[in-house]
């Protein structure tokens, strides 16, 4: 009896290990919608990116800026995004798309901020003692931003037993750094109905 129990346990263990090790990985199209858990995923990020990139460049804030600044293109810096939802969400996945659209459109200029700017300044500092005089970059000649892009992610969860409705709202705001005037607000609302 005991030997049978041991043999069965060993067999089950081996079968679990062997079955779980038969992993299969396939490449998929990043634009393909695959929802597994109902949580925030790449499709949501993509939808937000599409919405934001479409609306931010079409809005009149670009032309308004050019009119009041002798045709100069607005300069934007990306600020902080606050995730106030119930899930860990990194905004960089869609913010980068927005930044990319700025550069590709040629209508908006983008300056680096945060840690990357620190790195740039550190590199500049390094050049002061290591680079040749002709190639050394000077301090105090950075392009100042006219606008800062900030954002927030909020969510509402309504669940009952095995059913759940999750609502996400992503907001991006563009604010004039000089006057604090908000010149553009973009939002993307995503609602999901999840049943288990």
């Amino acid at each position: 009896m005991n030997n049978i129990l041991v043999a069965v346990s060993a067999l089950i263990t081996l079968s679990i290990v062997s079955a779980s090790c038969s992993r299969k990985v396939t490449r998929i199209d990043p634009s393909e919608q695959i929802d597994l858990s109902g949580r925030w995923n790449n499709t949501d990020s993509r939808l937000v990116a599409e919405e934001m990139t479409q609306t931010i460049l079409r809005d009149k804030w670009v032309s308004n800026h050019q009119e009041s600044n002798n045709g100069a293109k607005p300069v934007v810096i990306v600020g902080m995004v606050t995730n106030k939802s119930h899930e860990h969400i990194d905004a960089e996945t869609f913010i980068k798309d927005v930044e990319q659209s700025f550069i590709q459109s040629g209508k908006v200029r983008l300056v680096q901020g945060g840690k990357k700017r620190e790195e740039l300044r550190a590199e500049k500092a390094d050049q002061q003692t290591n680079a040749s005089a002709s190639s050394m970059k000077k301090f105090g000649l950075e392009q100042g931003a006219d606008y800062i892009l900030q954002g927030s992610i909020n969510s509402i969860v309504d669940s009952q037993k095995r059913k759940k409705v999750v609502y996400y709202q992503v907001n991006l705001e563009l604010t004039n750094i000089q006057s604090n005037e908000v010149v553009w607000i973009g939002d993307k609302k995503i609602a999901k109905y999840v049943t288990n």
Partner: peptide, 16 residues
């Protein structure tokens, strides 16, 4: 903190 996402998440009421 520019260009980063500040995580200020909350715990949702979720039965499952």
């Amino acid at each position: 903190l520019q260009g980063t996402t500040y995580q200020d998440t909350y715990r949702a009421i979720d039965y499952l």
